[in-house]
C-alpha cells in the first residue's frame, strides 16, 4: 500500500516536469540508440544509398571514363530504349536465368535427398559436391575453358575416345552450345550450395509429420510433394531467389568462357554494362543501363517472392 501510494505520488511530479529525470533518461536513451544505429546507417548509406544516388546522377550525365562530365537529362535513357543490343543482352540474361534456376533447384533437391541420410562415406560425397562452391568464379571458368578446349581439353578427348563424337566438339561455335557450356559450369559451381540449403530444409521437417503421412499410406513421392516440399518452402524460396539473382548478374563465366561470342550472342546484361563502361569508356550510359537493369531485377524478385509466399500460405 505504501509502495502504491509512493508510485501514485511520484507520477504527477514527472508529468509536470518533462525536462526532469525521466526526460533526461529518455533523451540519453535516444542518443544512445542513435549512436548504436549510426554504424549500421553509415554502412548502409555508404555501401548502398550513396552508390545508387551516384549512379542515378551519372545516368543523367554525359560521363566519360576520362574527361569532364555534364548533365544531359534523360538522353542516356532514351538511347537505351532504342538500343537493340542492350535489350538483346537483357533477354539473353533472362533466358539464361530461367534455364539455370529450375535446374539448380531440381538437381539440388535430388542431391539433398540422396545425401540427407547419414550413410558410410556420405560425408565425402557431400564435400565433393560442395567443394566447387569455394572455388572463385574466374578460376572455375578457366578450369571449364581448359577442360572443354577442342584442341587440348580432356572433355573432347573423352567424348571421342568413347566414340560419342567423331571429333572434339567446339562448344563455342554456336550460341546454344556456348550457353550450354556456361550453364554446366554454373551448375557445377553452385549446385553444392543449393544442396546444403535444401538439405537443411529437409532436416528441419519434424519426423512425426512425415511418419504420419507414411502411416496414412502416402507414397514417398506423395510425401515429398504434399508434405516435405510445402514445409521447406522457405529454403526453396531462398535457393530460387539467390540463384535467380545470381544468374541475372552472371558476368565472369561469359567474359572468360565465351567472351560474349559467337558474334556477341552470349553477352549478358552485366557484361554489356562492363563493355559500355570500360570498353566504350561511357560511364553515364553504363549507369543508365545499370539503373534500368536494377529496377527489372527488383520487380522480378518481388514477383518471385510473392509467388513463393502465396504457395507457402
Amino acid at each position: 500500500m505504501t509502495l502504491v501510494s509512493k508510485g501514485i505520488a511520484s507520477r504527477p511530479t514527472t508529468e509536470r516536469r518533462p525536462g526532469g529525470t525521466y526526460g533526461r533518461v529518455a533523451r540519453r536513451k535516444a542518443v544512445l540508440g542513435a549512436a548504436l544505429m549510426a554504424p549500421a546507417v553509415l554502412l548502409v548509406g555508404g555501401i548502398f544509398i550513396v552508390p545508387i544516388v551516384m549512379s542515378i546522377w551519372m545516368s543523367v550525365s554525359k560521363w566519360p571514363l576520362l574527361g569532364p562530365h555534364h548533365l544531359i537529362g534523360l538522353d542516356n535513357y532514351l538511347r537505351l530504349f532504342n538500343d537493340a543490343s542492350v535489350w538483346r543482352s537483357f533477354a539473353f540474361t533472362a533466358i539464361f536465368a530461367l534455364i539455370v534456376t529450375p535446374l539448380v533447384l531440381v538437381l539440388g533437391l535430388v542431391l539433398a535427398l540422396i545425401v540427407q541420410k547419414g550413410r558410410p562415406g556420405i560425408g565425402v560425397i557431400r564435400t565433393a559436391i560442395f567443394a566447387p562452391v569455394v572455388v572463385g568464379n574466374a578460376a572455375a571458368s578457366y578450369i571449364w575453358l581448359a577442360l572443354t578446349d577442342p584442341g587440348a581439353g580432356l572433355v573432347g578427348r573423352l567424348l571421342t575416345d568413347l566414340h560419342l563424337t567423331g571429333a572434339p566438339p567446339n562448344w563455342l561455335l554456336s550460341m546454344a552450345s556456348a550457353t550450354t557450356l556456361v550453364v554446366l559450369a554454373v551448375l557445377w559451381k553452385t549446385i553444392g550450395f543449393s544442396m546444403i540449403v535444401l538439405m537443411n530444409g529437409l532436416n528441419g521437417i519434424p519426423n512425426d509429420i512425415v511418419e504420419a503421412a507414411m502411416m496414412d499410406g502416402a507414397s514417398r513421392a506423395r510425401t515429398l510433394w504434399s508434405v516435405k516440399l510445402p514445409l521447406m518452402m522457405d529454403s526453396i524460396a531462398f535457393v530460387a531467389t539467390f540463384t535467380f539473382i545470381g544468374a541475372l548478374l552472371t558476368f565472369d563465366q561469359f567474359y572468360i568462357i565465351t567472351g560474349g561470342g559467337p558474334d556477341s550472342t552470349t553477352v549478358s546484361a552485366v557484361y554489356a554494362i562492363y563493355n559500355t563502361a570500360f570498353t566504350q569508356l561511357n560511364l553515364g550510359y553504363a549507369s543508365a543501363i545499370s539503373i534500368v537493369f536494377m529496377i527489372l531485377i527488383l520487380v522480378l524478385t518481388v514477383f518471385q517472392l510473392r509467388l513463393f509466399q502465396s504457395r507457402s500460405s
Binding site: 575453358l145 584442341g151 587440348a152 563455342l172 561455335l173 567472351g259 561470342g261
Partner: peptide, 12 residues
C-alpha cells in the same frame, strides 16, 4: 583452317 579458328578467343 581448323574449326577452332572461328572461336579461338586469344587464350590459345
Amino acid at each position: 583452317t581448323p574449326n577452332t579458328a572461328q572461336t579461338e578467343n586469344g587464350a590459345n
